[in-house]
Simulated scan of single mutants.
Amino acid sequence: MRLFLSGVRTQFWLMGRQPDDLLTLCTIPFTVVMLLSIVMHAARPDLVANAFLAPTLIGLWGFSTGLAAEVLLGERWNETLKLGMAAPGALHPVYLGRITAVMALGVVPLGETWLLGKLLFGVTPAVHHPWVFWAAMAASVFAMTGTSLLLATSMLMSKNSNHYLNFLSFPIYVLSGVMVPVHHLPEFLQPLSHFIFLSWSADLMRDSMAVAPVADIVWRLLAIVGLGVAALVGGRFVLAVGLRRARELGTVTYA
């Protein structure tokens, strides 16, 4: 726990000194304006909830690929990863703490989206089941933390990691149904969505904003958390393999 908290403090300190790391927040307004403009001008008030949720979940993923996944890569490029590897303590609690600090900011796009919707379009969707909504949001942040660790450790294996991260974004947005629900996708793609926690998050959060009772709340929350735990365990395993491989091949840095 001490190493984890040390990682959290370190990351908040780094973000305070490098505010450009938070540029993801600057892209959210454009996504909000685009999606809400389409929905409002099409006279589809039934899709307002979708247009609010999409930028929120896209922002959460943006923090993951834009900052959290680069925690380890930054260490490697700055040639400080080898210092951590030489330290007596374990590395994974420190990096998990740093990634958790980043993902704690994942709730900011939610507030940003609601504020912009009210100021620019004069609309905000009603949340009829708030505790379900916030439980799904908390589970999503947890799952995104585990996913970020898995992405970060996987990207550690390649010099061209940014290309892979950029490629992942839009397929994830489509398969997770952040704007268009999964059941509208071609049938052969729909099973893939079950392995992406954001698809469970988007569906559950949309249902929490509807008047009708929400079905299977516990099982759907467990699906989100379970996928997050699987990613967390996978990230821990890949980190151990990656660091061992770097030691054996002498490729701790890119120099």
Rank of each mutant, 00 (worst) to 15 (best):
residue 255 A to P: 04
residue 157 M to T: 12
residue 76 R to F: 11
residue 38 I to F: 15
residue 119 L to A: 10
residue 181 P to S: 13
residue 210 A to W: 00
residue 185 L to I: 08
residue 38 I to T: 13
residue 117 G to T: 00
residue 58 I to G: 03
residue 33 V to I: 14
residue 111 G to Q: 03
residue 255 A to E: 12
residue 143 A to I: 01
residue 1 M to P: 14
residue 215 A to C: 04
residue 175 L to R: 07
residue 79 E to K: 14
residue 115 L to V: 11
residue 97 G to D: 01
residue 80 T to I: 06
residue 216 D to G: 10
residue 226 G to C: 09
residue 94 V to F: 10
residue 146 G to T: 03
residue 243 L to P: 00
residue 16 G to D: 06
residue 176 S to P: 04
residue 135 A to P: 02
residue 91 L to V: 13
residue 240 A to V: 13
residue 184 H to D: 12
residue 120 L to P: 01
residue 232 L to H: 06
residue 68 A to F: 08
residue 230 A to N: 04
residue 68 A to C: 07
residue 142 F to P: 03
residue 22 L to I: 08
residue 144 M to C: 12
residue 24 T to N: 11
residue 220 R to Y: 02
residue 242 G to K: 07
residue 132 V to M: 04
residue 44 R to T: 08
residue 221 L to N: 06
residue 100 T to E: 02
residue 225 V to M: 03
residue 146 G to Q: 11
residue 152 A to I: 05
residue 37 S to A: 11
residue 89 G to L: 14
residue 60 L to T: 11
residue 32 V to H: 05
residue 49 A to W: 04
residue 191 P to S: 05
residue 174 V to N: 05
residue 35 L to I: 08
residue 220 R to E: 05
residue 50 N to Y: 11
residue 94 V to E: 04
residue 37 S to M: 11
residue 47 L to I: 08
residue 216 D to I: 08
residue 121 F to R: 00
residue 234 G to Q: 04
residue 199 S to R: 04
residue 87 A to S: 13
residue 221 L to K: 07
residue 138 A to C: 09
residue 68 A to E: 07
residue 133 F to V: 03
residue 113 T to I: 02
residue 83 L to I: 11
residue 76 R to S: 05
residue 226 G to Y: 05
residue 109 P to T: 00
residue 148 S to P: 10
residue 136 A to V: 06
